[in-house]
Nucleic acid binder design. Structure first.
Length: 391
DNA sequence: AATGAGTTTCCTGTTT
DNA sequence: AAAACAGGAAACTCAT
C-alpha cells in the first residue's frame, strides 16, 4: 500500500525534523513491551518478521532497563537535519525531512503526495520548476517553491532563517490556543488546548506533575482513584476533557452487574465487545449515551503527538532511545485515561490501550515489511502510523 | 447493505 | 502466588 509508506515517511521525517540532527541509524532487534509503568516499547523493523513479534519481541526487564543510559531529553528546539545546510547540498534524506516538515507545517494532506517522486537530493530539488513542484505536491508546490527560493537566494540569511523558523515554531506552539499550531486535527491536545482556554488535563503545562494536579483543572489523578466527580459528560454536550470517574477505577471493575449479553441499550450496543459485567446498567441510570470517538483520531496519532510534544506531555511518555525507536510509558494509566478521554470512554485502561497498540504493531509487521525493506529506515518508518489505510 | 479499518472488551495462557 | 504481559476472539463504530 503505497499511501501507507508515504504517511510513514511523513511521520518519519517529521519526527526526524523535530528531534534529530543526526542521520538515522539502523536499529537492533525490535522489542515491544506494552506493560505497566516503566515498560518500553521498541518499534524497530530491521528484523521484523511477518510472523509478528514472536521470537523477536519481548519484554524488557527492569534489570535490562536499569542498565540503559538515561535518555536524552529531546526538545522541539533541536534542529532538523536540513537546517544546517543550503538546499543545494541537501541529501535525499534531508530533502525528505524538509518536505515532511513543510507538509506538517502547512497541514497539508500528505496522502495526496506521491513520495516516490521525492527521491531526489537538494540539487535536484532546487532545479525543479514551479510547475514540477505543483505536479508532485499540488498546492503545496507553491509553498515549497517559495521557501526554496528564499533558502537558496539568501546566503547570509541562513542562520536568521533558522532562528525565525524556530521562533515561529515556538510561537505557533505558544499560540496553540488560537491556531492548533503543531497539533493537527487529530492531536490529542488540539481540542483540549482549544477548550475554553483552560488546561484540559492535569498532565499538561506546569500544573501537572506527578501527584500534582492543577487546582483549577478537571481533576483526575493518574491512578484515577481519587476525587470522584459527577462529570458524566454526554457526547452531545460534553467536551473531551470531561473525564468520567464513574469508571472502573472509582468503581471496582466487577462491582456492577453488566447488561445482558446481546441486549442492546437504546438500540445500539456499545463499542467493543460487551462487558461481561454490566456497567451499562449504571450508564443507563446516569443517562449516558454511546461512546464513540470521531474518526480521525487514531491511537498512533495520539501516541505520536504525545511523543513529539515532550514539553507538553512530560511525565506521560518519553523517548528512551529515539534512534532505536524506543519510547517509554512513564505513566501508563494516565496515558490510557487521556486516551479514554479522547475517545469518550471512561473505561479505558492501559491494558486495553496496550492491546490496541499491539494489534497496530502486529498489523504493521505483517503487512508493511516489504515497505520497510525498501525504504531507508529511520525511527518514523518503524513508528506505527503506517497501519492506517489512506485512500 | 456489505465490508474493512480501527479499535474495545474479555478472556486465557505465559512470563516475571 | 500474583502481577504483568501477549495475543485470540468477538463485537462494536465509522467510513466507504
Amino acid at each position: 500500500m503505497a499511501a501507507t509508506c508515504e504517511i510513514s515517511n511523513v511521520f518519519s521525517n517529521y519526527f526526524n525534523a523535530m528531534y534529530s540532527s543526526e542521520d538515522p541509524t539502523l536499529a537492533p532487534a525490535p522489542l515491544t513491551t506494552f506493560g505497566t509503568e516503566d515498560f518500553v516499547l521498541t518499534l524497530n523493523n530491521q528484523h521484523m518478521s511477518p510472523e509478528g513479534p514472536v521470537g523477536c519481541v519481548g519484554p524488557q526487564t527492569r534489570s535490562q532497563r536499569d542498565r540503559t543510559e538515561p535518555p536524552a531529553v529531546l526538545h522541539l528546539a533541536e534542529k532538523a537535519s536540513w537546517t544546517g545546510e543550503r538546499p543545494q547540498f541537501w541529501s535525499k534524506t534531508q530533502v525528505l525531512d524538509w518536505i515532511s516538515y513543510q507538509v506538517e507545517k502547512n497541514k497539508y494532506d500528505a496522502s495526496s503526495i506521491d513520495f516516490s517522486r521525492c527521491d531526489m537530493d537538494g540539487a535536484t530539488l532546487c532545479n525543479c520548476a514551479l510547475e514540477e513542484l505543483r505536479l508532485v505536491f499540488g498546492p503545496l508546490g507553491d509553498q515549497l517553491h517559495a521557501q526554496l527560493r528564499d533558502l537558496t537566494s539568501s546566503s547570509s540569511d541562513e542562520l536568521s532563517w533558522i532562528i525565525e523558523l524556530l521562533e515561529k515554531d515556538g510561537m505557533t506552539f505558544q499560540e496553540g490556543l488560537g491556531d492548533s499550531g503543531p497539533f493537527d486535527q487529530g492531536s490529542p491536545f488540539a481540542q483540549e488546548l482549544l477548550d475554553d482556554g483552560r488546561q484540559a488535563s492535569p498532565y499538561y503545562g506546569s500544573s501537572y506533575g506527578p501527584g500534582a494536579p492543577s487546582p483549577g483543572s478537571s481533576d483526575f489523578s493518574t491512578s484515577g482513584t481519587d476525587t470522584p466527580q459527577s462529570s458524566h459528560s454526554s457526547d452531545s454536550g460534553g467536551s473531551d476533557v470531561d473525564l468520567d470517574l464513574t469508571d472502573s477505577k472509582v468503581f471496582p471493575r466487577d462491582g456492577f452487574p453488566d447488561y445482558k449479553k446481546g441486549e442492546p441499550k437504546h438500540g445500539k450496543r456499545k463499542r467493543g465487545r460487551p462487558r461481561k459485567l454490566s456497567k451499562e446498567y449504571w450508564d443507563c441510570l446516569e443517562g449516558k449515551k454511546s461512546k464513540h470517538a470521531p474518526r480521525g483520531t487514531h491511537l498512533w496519532e495520539f501516541i505520536r503527538d504525545i511523543l513529539i510534544h515532550p514539553e507538553l506531555n512530560e511525565g506521560l511518555m518519553k523517548w528512551e532511545n529515539r534512534h532505536e525507536g524506543v519510547f517509554k510509558f512513564l505513566r501508563s494509566e494516565a496515558v490510557a485515561q487521556l486516551w479514554g478521554q479522547k475517545k469518550k470512554n471512561s473505561n479505558m485502561t492501559y491494558e486495553k490501550l496496550s492491546r490496541a497498540m499491539r494489534l497496530i504493531l502486529r498489523h504493521l509487521m505483517r503487512e508493511r515489511i516489504e515497505i520497510y525493506s525498501s525504504a531507508p529506515l529511520t525511527l518514523g518508518h518503524s513508528f506505527f502510523p503506517c497501519a492506517t489505510k489512506v485512500n
